[in-house]
């Protein structure tokens, strides 16, 4: 799915972390570890073209991403620290807009999705009046609805309670079982039991 050789992000033209190699086949999970400020978030952003990066090679499903960034942008789904939810819009409206902007169709019925995510009954509530954890779940609905093969998740467990984390794990398990891949960042022990490869970002010397 995603292969990289000697990949690192650049800040002021200097490497942010020691170059890493990535080999993420379909159906696998990759965990990025590292201290605060090691560059985990930046790496995810850089893959999507939001930050400069350098690599010997970088391929996404056979396409050379260093030349053709668009392949990755249309094949990956990114969930960042900021949830990109509009407080004045309902969960349903937010989801519908977020799918349309990437020209995707919802994989399942929205009510069913919300039920699976534990926010049943809130479909038509403005996200402004949801709690932080509920908002996070509303943002996760985007993952559940999508059929994009690669998920890039930045701290997907932040703000979630135990059942919430179980929801993320279930979403991940389904996605991997379908042949999708996921890359997620974490700075602690992961609250899940799925098998995962770990890549650690170390300070560049």
């Amino acid at each position: 799915m995603l292969q990289a050789e000697s990949l690192t992000c650049l800040r002021d033209e200097e490497a942010l972390f020691a170059p890493i190699d990535i080999d993420l086949p379909p159906g696998h999970l990759l965990v990025l570890e590292g201290r605060n400020g090691a560059g985990k978030t930046t790496l995810l952003r850089a893959l999507l073209g939001l930050h400069p990066l350098t690599a010997k090679s970088l391929h996404f499903r056979g396409t050379d991403v260093l030349r053709e960034r668009h392949a990755l942008c249309s094949g990956a789904l990114w969930l960042g620290h900021l949830l990109a939810l509009k407080g004045d819009l309902t969960v349903r409206e937010n989801l519908r807009y977020n799918l349309a902007i990437g020209d995707e169709d919802a994989a399942e019925d929205v009510d069913e999705l919300c039920a699976n995510l534990g926010i049943a009954g809130y479909e038509d509530t403005p996200t402004r009046s949801l709690s932080a954890g509920q908002r996070k779940r509303a943002a996760l609905a985007r993952l559940a609805a999508s059929r994009r093969p690669l998920w890039l998740l930045d701290e997907p467990f932040a703000n979630l309670d135990g059942p919430g984390m179980a929801v993320v794990e279930r979403l991940l398990a389904t996605h991997l079982a379908r042949g999708g891949s996921a890359m997620l960042t974490s700075h602690g022990v992961l609250p899940i039991t799925l098998p995962a490869t770990t890549v650690r970002l170390e300070h560049a010397r």
């Binding site: 942008c73 620290h81 990109a84 977020n98």
Partner: peptide, 9 residues
Amino acid sequence: DGTLDQWLA
């Protein structure tokens, strides 16, 4: 709210 970064990504 991060919408802009989602557009760019």
